[in-house]
Design a protein around this nucleic acid. Structure first.
Length: 309
DNA sequence: AATTCTAGCAACCGCCTCTTT
DNA sequence: AAAAGAGGCGGTTGCTAGAAT
């Protein structure tokens, strides 16, 4: 036995929206707001539509600041990176692209971007990058807040700020926010550089000074930053590069500033290229196996994602 | 000019999760 | 604690316009 339908299907109009319906819906919402109930809204607004249909029409088309038209290269990159990281979680991806809707991005991916990338990957030769097998550790299950990125365009050598160590852990357990549990800075840097590229852009979801833990406690934010010494030569970092690791707690706890040697390995080619192989695998494997790529904890206790690109 | 094919996109469907009762 | 209702999401469908034959 299925769930009862959300509306009387027989008396509900389906199909494309007319300009009159659009203006009725828009006028109503601008005047009265959504009112916390989409199901009741169409009746109040004088529309013979399902509440869900109204919601979709508003979110995808009528609401202010919707961006239509061509996607930029930057948007492409963000979509690719996030897709390789979290899979087809379009709403999360859309949250990182102001003005774009999940439906838009989904359509764009399915009709254009996916093909574009497949063409691109088919012309590539032996990528020298770490595969995703080495990559993304699960995110912390501590923070229940969902954050938006605080920065989207750091240069390769800019410090990474507001980094939350809790997302860094590599053994599928939560790295506690007590910095004493970060055993050594070297391990941390090694881990990070094995897991991610130290590259142009670093995005974190986390701009708040604190967040609420799953048990309700407020968690003091720890911070961490890297500063590279040396040059990014367009293909990777110069061999003698070092990084400044700075971490500590924002509430007066331990603070560390230390130069760390760059761990061995080749990191830092074009992030889009880096993800292409992963993306290609994702595309060719019917559907998205988030387990290989996700930074979102499997228990779905939060949607907190961290990524480089 | 007519027909067929294809790409793009808006909208729907059904499932899942969260909230309320 | 359980059930019901509502919102949200991702997958899919179907229509339309333009391109190709």
């Amino acid at each position: 036995m299925g769930r009862a339908p959300c509306c009387d299907k027989a008396n509900v109009k389906k199909g494309p929206w007319s300009p009159e319906e659009d203006s009725k819906l828009k006028d109503y919402i601008e005047k009265y707001g959504i009112g916390g109930n989409w199901i009741a809204l169409p009746h109040k607004a004088g529309l013979k539509r399902c509440g869900k249909s109204c919601r979709l029409r508003w979110l995808n088309y009528l609401r202010p600041n919707i961006k239509h038209g061509e996607f930029t290269d930057d948007e492409d990159r963000i979509i690719c990176t996030l897709f390789a990281t979290i899979g087809s979680r379009w709403s999360i991806i859309a949250a990182q692209l102001p003005g774009r809707t999940d439906n838009d991005i989904k359509n764009y991916w399915n009709t254009k971007l996916k093909k574009k990338l497949m063409v691109k990957t088919s012309t590539r030769h032996s990528p020298p990058f770490p595969t995703s097998h080495q990559a993304p550790p699960p995110a912390s299950s501590l923070c229940t807040s969902y954050y938006t990125p605080i920065c989207t365009s750091l240069s390769p050598l800019e410090p990474v700020s507001s980094f939350q160590p809790a997302v860094l852990n590599n053994d599928h357990t939560t790295l506690a926010t007590n910095s004493s549990l970060i055993q050594t800075p070297e391990n941390l840097v090694n881990h990070m550089m094995q897991c991610y590229q130290m590259k142009q852009n670093f995005l974190t979801f986390g701009s708040e000074p604190s967040c609420t833990c799953s048990d309700g406690r407020e968690m003091k934010q720890e911070y961490m930053s890297f500063q590279g010494l040396g040059a990014y030569n367009g293909h990777g970092y110069e061999d003698d590069q070092r990084f400044m690791l700075n971490y500590g707690t924002s509430n007066g706890g331990e603070n560390v500033n230390q130069w760390i040697e760059k761990p061995s390995g080749n990191y830092g080619e074009c992030p889009l290229d880096y993800n292409l192989e992963d993306i290609k695998r994702l595309i060719s494997s019917s559907g998205c196996d988030n387990s290989s790529f996700s930074l979102v904890d499997e228990n779905n206790t939060q949607d907190k994602v961290m990524y480089y690109y």
